[in-house]
């Protein structure tokens, strides 16, 4: 596992995301309004919707396909939906976003 440089924080819009494609998995990197950064498997626990394309609010993202609300903090779906998607370690240092893969 190593920390990889992704992009400058400013390349991710506030309340937005970027898609990172690795060899094994697509990962959505999300930025909240207060500049916290989260990384989730880009696949919605419902039917695999691309979470990185959803609307980000608070620390959640609404899936673009059927609006499940997924927590950026732990990847869990909001009740009453049940499901969970994987989270990955991310950090921001000197304005650069790093992802551990």
């Amino acid at each position: 596992m190593t920390w990889k440089v992704i992009c400058p924080l400013t390349d991710i819009p506030k309340l937005g995301s970027r898609l990172v494609r690795t060899k094994s998995v697509d990962i959505g990197i999300f930025r909240t309004e207060d500049d916290r950064v989260f990384a989730l498997n880009n696949s919605c626990p419902h039917k695999g919707g691309p979470l990185s394309q959803g609307i980000v609010y608070g620390d959640k993202v609404a899936c673009p396909l059927h609006s499940w609300k997924i927590s950026l903090v732990d990847g869990k779906a909001e009740e009453p939906d049940v499901g969970e998607t994987a989270c990955y370690p991310v950090k921001v240092e000197d304005g650069i976003v790093y992802l551990e893969v």
């Binding site: 937005g16 691309p50 394309q53 959803g54 609307i55 980000v56 673009p64």
Partner: peptide
Amino acid sequence: DPQSRFINERVHANIQKDG
């Protein structure tokens, strides 16, 4: 505000079931 628009209007295309 593009971040307050549904994905379709943000990218000017219609998202499909497989993304």
